[in-house]
Every structure is written in structure tokens, then in C-alpha cells.
Design a protein around this nucleic acid. Structure first.
Lengths: 342, 342
DNA sequence: ATTAGCACTCGAAGTTATCGAGTGCTAACA
DNA sequence: TGTTAGCACTCGATAACTTCGAGTGCTAAT
């Protein structure tokens, strides 16, 4: 069990290391805290904390930096979320409060704002698409050879794509195709829809609307896009600031990964509730072992859960990040509830 | 006037410098070229070329690197576009030849492919929007409180946006608004449209469809987006490879600039025909003074001109870039012609 | 005009010296 | 038993110095 003084020292050390980025020595802690003791005493305590595995040295005579275990303990027991300043609160509610927008816009702007406020990399993920149900499908002839396909789901996503038909469009065929889709796909989950698109639908189209066979491929791609769940990421360039000396190759891999829906969803797969922090190796991802990932969920009743996450250095300002993230979580839940239920 | 031998030397020096990135000495040139002379002779020639301003030293006893003037001369008189390998040609025509796509997709994929093939940063700009004419406007009620606005222009762009109405949608209002827009805006240039959106239209809506006033703001934003001409950029991360030791701050500014339509169009403003290369300071942009910009246009008759550009280091492999760019120019013109006229 | 020969230059890379923040240990003290 | 002044020691960072070699310009001979 750690003594009161040890807790104060550990807390101070992490705070100081986070703000300076340098290993912290006994004297620095002496100055920073209100501890009534000499630097020698603190040195003894530091030595204790090191034996217990909470802190470590970078070399035999250096100051101490927090270890993974130290951060873990700090986050679980010492850290308290920092309150967000009034002016920042206002910005957040201004941007997210205005809900004459599409869900995608809201999520996108959230990511942008979150990365601006934290100076880390922000990730906002919408509810997973697999469980969404198709609620609407329509084809719209824009002119002689352009058709727009629109699909809607019960999770509120609306996806559309314009494509070009080689031949002039036959209105009757459009109706036929629309009917086939509405009949056989609406009401089912997107996973089910994907399956049927492979199996039954091509047959039906060939049978009842053979002229429209060419259209089928294009329509299929709209569905494909809608299944790729929405992910929004912002502040990728901040990685350059908080991860110095990262080599180009690694950076490229990282960027590629951050642009892949699949990888991101895998990352936050088991996140279910509240705040979850994964530090360094805890993330269990080779590219991210020098980073920390702070995640939380926003929840809109039956419409599903989304994830908000901040990717930063292991020496992240966790207290600020938690504070900001908490505001986002609440605001986003609020905005989306209004969006769905109003 | 440069002698034959001086031309050979200059050409070799630029080739060698481009591939190694190191200053080139007299012996290296001796080995690389078929010149029948000693290194001392080449040293004399190099000294000449330096006096003429085509090459320069990095320090008093270093090898030579090309100067801006040297590159200029090389591009204008020595360089010949390199033929593109068969397999690459195939990739290009495969990707761009399939034209069951939207124009945006084609441009986007062009940018991606171009950056992949060159390892530089690729920019593809569509025809400037200002001169486009609005050819179609429609509003589509998706459900009780979601409306999709779709606008089309004579340049083939189709822009749409879904927005949410606070109240349940009144079909009659939609029709009214659509009529107002079709009556007063269709047929005009987007610049003109923008002006009227500020002046006449709000009045008309208030007069004839006052319930729909809230809708107006959302619709306006669709037009705003469509005026922001399309730009597609790819391979931004390659900057890290070809511009070593660029500091984070500068990189961020550069990225911001590359994401801004306005800045990009300003950059290629006076580009009109054929190939134009701007080297370093010739670009006349503070952030780009260490880069080169190779641009060309693709032209689709009356539909307007677009620009394809490659941003790379001043020591770029100009011959390859020209070769690849030429293929893109032709293929893109071809594909878009089919797209518009078929 | 060309070239062998040579002294000279200067950056890159390696080596050594210096400095100081920080530690652990010892011995004295409350 | 916990605390602390004092001190020797460690080790990275930085600076100063050395060495090496690729490359140059110049000179004098061909």
C-alpha cells in the first residue's frame, strides 16, 4: 500500500513529467509539492516507488519517469478529470448544438473540435453498421443518363451515390429495380442485405429487369459504402508534435491504419461503457505501443453506441483529456437524442 | 552558348544529382558519361558552367548541384519525357477507362494513382466552378423530417446534401421553394446564383413560402459547397520523403494550404496550356520555395479546363513526371470526353 | 586545349573533455 | 525509526578537437 506522501509524490511526478517531458528529480518535486521534508527523503520515497514498479529511470543517474504501471495507477486512483473552461464549453455547445445537420457532419465536426481542443488525434465512430436495418431505398433519374441511388437505415444514416448509365435511362426499369429492392431488402439488417445482394437479387434482376443489369454493380457499391461504418478522424498531423522522431515509414503505416474503418473498429472493439484508457502496450497494437488511447462511448438508446476516442502520447494530459471527452460524450448524446427523437 | 560537351555534362549532372541527392564531382561525371577527357578537363568545364550560373557548389570544395537556372535550362532544352512502362500504362487505363463513375471519382482516383506512380504529391483540379451554369435544382423529401437538395451544373457536377428540418415537412412548401429556385436561378452562372441567393431569393421565400424560411440556410450551404471547385489531392505524406528536415510548423501550414481550394486554384491560376514547370522560387509562394510544381491541363471542349499537377522536390525526376503526366492528360481528356458526350 | 600533379578546403564522422543534474549511501540527528 | 546533510559517483548532453577523404583550383608540362 502506498503512503499518503507517496501518492502525492507520484501524482506530482506524473503532472510534472507530462508538462515538461523531462525525467523528474527529487528537488523538482520538493519545489512543486507542499511536502515538509528534504530532497533526500524524497529520494528515498522515489527509490521505494521505483521498487514497487510505479516509476523508472532512463539511466542509472537520471530522474524518474512514470512506468506503465504508474500511469495505470494514476488513472485508476489519482487523476481527476479537469473541468473544461467556460469559453471552450461554449464553443463545443455552439458547434454541436446546432442540429440542422446530418449525423455525419456532427460527427465530423466533433472530431475536428476535439483534436483542436486537445492537440491530440481525435477519432469519432458512429454506431456499427452491421446491425442497422435498411429502411428505405430509391432510385432517382437526374437526367438522361444519370441516376442517383439513395439508401436509408434505421440508424439515421443516409447514403447516396450518383452513377452514370451507359444507355439512356428507361424509367420503367428504374421502377422495376426499385420494387425488387424494396421488396426483398428493406427491413433487413445490412449484413443480411449484403448476403442477398450476392445471391437472390442478381437473379431477380435478370428475370424481371434484364435491361438494368448494368445498373446493379453501381447500386451494389452504394450498399458497400454504407456498410463501411462511419469513422471520422481529425488532427492526424498532431502526431508529429507529440511523437517526435517517428520515422516516415512508421508514420505512413499509422496514417493508413487510421484511415481504415476496420482497423479503428477493431481497436475499440470491446469498449462498452464509460471511460477506458489503454496505455502503450495495453493497446496491443504494434504501431501504437508508444501511444495512449482514451475512449468513451456515447449512447443513443436503441439506435446504438458510438465511440469517441483521443489518441495521444503515453505522457498525455489525461486529466484534461478526460474533462473534454466527458463534455463531448454528454453533448453528443444530447444532440443525437434530439436528432433522432425530436 | 554552351558547347556540346557542356550540355552533356549538365545533363549528366542533373540526372546524377536527381538520383543520388548528393553534390556531383568531376570524377563521377567522367565515369557516367562517354566523354573522352580527364577529370581535370571536366573540372574546367564545371567551373565554366558555374560561372554561367547553371550549377553551384554547396561549399568551397564540394561537388556541384544544379542551380535554378540550370534546372530551367534542363527542362527547356535537354529533358525529354520518359516513356511510361507498359504495365503502368495498363494500370492507368484500367483505372481511368472504367467510366461508370462520377466525375469526382475519376478525378479522385487520378490523383491517387498519380501520386502512387510518381511518389510525389498529386493535385487534380476540376474546371473552375464560377463559370458553371446551374442546370437543375430539386428537393426530395426522404421522410418526415429529412430533405435532400440536389443541384446540377452544365459542367457535369452533381452536388447533394441531406438536411434535417425542425418541423415535419410540408410537401407544398417544398414545391414552392423548388419552383422559386428553378424560376430564378436555373440557367445562371454559379457566381450569379450566389449573388441572387444573397439578395432576391430570401425575399421571395418570405413572400411565397414563409414556412420554409428555415430551409433556406441549409440550401444555401449546398450551393456554397458546389461553388468550391473540386480539388483532389493525394500523396501528401510523400512530402515527408522528398523534403527531409521540414519542421512541423511548416508542414502543418503546407497541409492546410493544400487542403484549400482557393489556394490551389491561385497557384495554377495562369496555367493555360500544355506543360508548365515552376521551380522553387518561380512558384512565388513562401511555403513552396523548396519545391517544384509540374502542371498541365486537360481540356474537355466547352466544358472547361482542369489542371493536373505534381508537387515534388526541385530535384524531381522531371523526365518521368512529364511522361506520366502526359499519359494522364490524354487519358483523362479521353475519359471525360466520353463521359460528357457519349 | 588538355592533363598530371599537388596543395588546399571543408563537411562528416569519430574521439575526447567538460559539465551538471541527479542518484545512492553513510553517518549523524530528533 | 524516520529524517537529513554531505559527498562520491554515474552518465547523458554538449562542446572542442582530430581525422579522413572527396572534391576543388591552380600550375606547369604536353
Amino acid at each position: 500500500m502506498l503512503t499518503k506522501r507517496q501518492l502525492i509524490i507520484l501524482d506530482a511526478l506524473i503532472r510534472l513529467y507530462t508538462s515538461t517531458g523531462q525525467p523528474i528529480g527529487s528537488k523538482t518535486i520538493l519545489i512543486d509539492t507542499a511536502i515538509e521534508a528534504s530532497s533526500a527523503t524524497i529520494r528515498n520515497e522515489l527509490s521505494q516507488l521505483e521498487k514497487l514498479g510505479f516509476i523508472q529511470k532512463t539511466h542509472s543517474s537520471s530522474g524518474r519517469i512514470p512506468s506503465l504501471k504508474g500511469y495505470r495507477f494514476y488513472i485508476d486512483h489519482l487523476m481527476r478529470p479537469q473541468e473544461v473552461a467556460k469559453d471552450k464549453m461554449k464553443i463545443i455547445s455552439d458547434v454541436l448544438g446546432n442540429h440542422v445537420k446530418q449525423m455525419d457532419d456532427i460527427m465530423h465536426q466533433s472530431a475536428q473540435l476535439l483534436s483542436d481542443l486537445t492537440n491530440y488525434t481525435a477519432i469519432v465512430l458512429g454506431p456499427r453498421a452491421e446491425t442497422s436495418r435498411l429502411t428505405g431505398f430509391r432510385l432517382l433519374a437526374l437526367n438522361d443518363n444519370h441516376v442517383m441511388a439513395i439508401i436509408q437505415t434505421d440508424k439515421g444514416t443516409i447514403e447516396n451515390k450518383v452513377f452514370r448509365m451507359p444507355k439512356t435511362i428507361n424509367e420503367a426499369d428504374l421502377v422495376k429495380v426499385t420494387n425488387i429492392f424494396n421488396h426483398h431488402l428493406v427491413g433487413h439488417t445490412l449484413t443480411e442485405v449484403a448476403r442477398r445482394l450476392q445471391r437472390d437479387i442478381p437473379l431477380l434482376i435478370r428475370k424481371y429487369a434484364s435491361n438494368a443489369a448494368e445498373m446493379f454493380l453501381s447500386i451494389e457499391s452504394v450498399f458497400k459504402e454504407s456498410t463501411e461504418s462511419r469513422h471520422h478522424i481529425s488532427g492526424k498531423l498532431n502526431i508529429l508534435d507529440f511523437s517526435e522522431n517517428i520515422d516516415t515509414q512508421k508514420l505512413k503505416s499509422l496514417y493508413t491504419m487510421l484511415d481504415s474503418s476496420g482497423d479503428l473498429y477493431a481497436l475499440v472493439d470491446q469498449i462498452n461503457d464509460d471511460f477506458v484508457v489503454k496505455i502503450g502496450e495495453e493497446i496491443n497494437h504494434d504501431l501504437l505501443k508508444d501511444f495512449s488511447l482514451v475512449t468513451t462511448t456515447y449512447n443513443v438508446r436503441s439506435y446504438g453506441k458510438g465511440v469517441i476516442a483521443v489518441l495521444g502520447p503515453t505522457s498525455m494530459a489525461y486529466d484534461e483529456t478526460f474533462g473534454v471527452l466527458d463534455v463531448f460524450r454528454k453533448q453528443l448524446t444530447h444532440t443525437l437524442l434530439e436528432y433522432y427523437l425530436e
